[in-house]
Design a protein around this nucleic acid. Structure first.
Length: 436
RNA sequence: GGCGCCUUGGCCGAGUGGUUAGGCACAGGUCUGCAAAACCUGGUACACCGGUUCGACUCCGGUAGGCGCCUCCA
């Protein structure tokens, strides 16, 4: 099993099973309903965990929730703690509804402030950080390897407005003194305040795993500065930190990165309600994890058609054939889900296909839905009408069944009722972009 | 200015130095009372310009266009 690592810019072989494989995937900052782009690292992490476990690994997935951040203060002045708690619950509900289960741990920054303070104190003791006016900053100059992950060079970065407290513009905050209007703060050796974003993740990851772990994941937009800074912080204490860095491609909408700040985001909630969880998962499955994917009605529609195609396999007799090793080869080679999907499209062996789909939380496509008794009665009546060659009546009954959202399909010696794929749940519009 | 990524047939999307990716849509056919589903068949693609090579969509260089990051961001 190998995965592409941002750190080395090439494919890295994982240690042999059973590992262990410890994975830390960055989650969202919670201050409103998370958008569908936020779901990608979560989905990828859960799929990777499932696959590695299938391959005999001992895997632990930790997925954090950032509930201390400037954004939260801005979004709810004076009531940020309540908002963060509420939005964290939304996020848990939303990812839960994707039907993939939950990560092994879901740490929140607010639970780790004492550990964060202790970590910062060590950095200060080592001379890698300095206090200034109630803030504490990381001294980037102290890390000769800074830029190892992103390739950014401090001397080439765009000029930034100088903070009077920082010694150098590239230094970043580990601890921020509390400001007027902020409704949460914690005590520290430097006075009341709150942790900076990057240190939260360094600490939560190390609290879960210790100073070294195998995989750190997150969106491509986190490479710099967030992950670069995490790495610098932990290296400053002599910790190896993450060995393989996986960064998923971003979701675009209208050709641009989907993001709250651009206002072109569509919530997970909205997409799951509109299209259903299986379609969302198939949508993610159809693109390689490292590449961007464009969120459009057309691509969702295609994912929906694929879901229907898989359901139809389970409405037909199982036919032996198909090669599990094709799926293994695809997934072991940088977790190539589009290729795995292509392999599964060739399978008519129900058990094999069910096993493959289940890896991705799509085992439900194998389940058949019972029609309501009254529709079964109508279908039976239609069957009798056909036998009596009363085709006008048969067609009328078929229309009546269709109006109820079901489709009659003639089967050998009888009929089958399936929920109409044209009806009704899936209007399929992404027009309702959140406006706030 | 710096760092990195991308450009495949109507659409989505893998991949490889010489072999049909796959899916969606579409068209024709088989089946059907007619449909639906299923199955069969069909379109021969790799931004542009050079180079390397017996041979490049696949390697190298350049051009154009697009995207991400350098500020909160999955």
């Amino acid at each position: 099993m190998r995965l592409y690592s941002t750190l080395t810019r090439r494919l890295e072989e994982l240690p042999p099973a059973p590992g262990p494989i410890r994975m830390y995937f960055c989650g969202p900052t919670v201050y409103q309903r998370a958008h569908i782009g936020n779901a990608r690292p979560f989905v990828l992490g859960m799929w990777l965990r499932a696959w590695l476990r299938d391959r005999g690994y001992e895997v632990t997935l930790v997925h954090n929730i950032t509930d201390i951040n400037d954004k939260i203060y801005e979004a709810a002045p004076g009531a940020s703690a309540e908002l963060a708690a509420r939005a964290a619950r939304w996020y848990l509900d939303d990812i839960g509804d994707l039907g993939l289960g939950l990560p092994d741990e879901l740490p929140q920054a607010t639970q780790y402030v004492p550990q964060i303070v202790a970590f910062i104190e060590q950095l200060v003791d080592r001379g890698a950080a300095y206090a200034a006016g109630g803030d504490v900053y990381f001294a980037v100059e102290s890390d000769p390897g800074y830029g190892r992950l992103s390739g950014q060079r401090v001397d080439q970065m765009e000029p930034e407005e100088r903070s009077s407290l920082k010694r150098a513009p590239e230094d970043f905050a580990l601890w921020k003194a509390t400001k007027p209007g902020e409704d949460t703060s914690w005590e520290s050796p430097w006075g009341p305040g709150r942790p900076g974003w990057h240190i939260e993740c360094s600490v939560m990851a190390e609290e879960a795993f210790g100073p070294v772990f195998e995989i750190h994941g997150g969106g491509l937009d986190l490479v710099f500065p967030h992950h670069e800074n995490e790495l610098a912080q932990s290296h400053a204490l002599g910790h190896g930190f993450a060995e393989i860095w996986t960064h998923n491609g971003l979701l675009t909408f209208g050709g641009e990165k989907m993001s709250k700040s651009l206002g072109n985001d569509v919530s997970i909630r909205n997409v799951v309600d509109t299209w259903g969880r299986e379609v969302v998962l198939l949508f993610f499955l159809s693109g390689h994890w490292r590449k961007p994917i464009e969120f459009t009605d057309a691509t969702l529609q295609q994912a929906k058609a694929q879901a229907e195609g898989f359901r139809n396999v389970f409405r037909s007799p199982s036919e032996p054939g198909g090669d599990w090793s094709a799926l293994e080869a695809a997934l072991d080679d940088d977790f190539n889900t589009p290729e795995a999907l292509a392999a599964m499209h060739g399978w008519r062996d129900r058990e094999l296909l069910r096993r493959g789909l289940s890896l991705f939380g799509l085992g439900s496509l194998a389940e058949r839905e019972e029609a309501p008794a009254e529709l079964t009665a109508l279908a039976a009546a239609r069957q009798r009408a056909r036998e009596a060659k009363d085709f006008a009546e048969a067609d009328r009954l078929r229309d009546e069944i269709a109006a109820a959202g079901w489709e009659v399909r003639d089967a050998a010696g009888g009929f089958e009722l399936v929920p109409s794929p044209l009806q009704p749940d899936v209007g399929g519009s992404t027009a309702d972009v959140s406006s706030s």
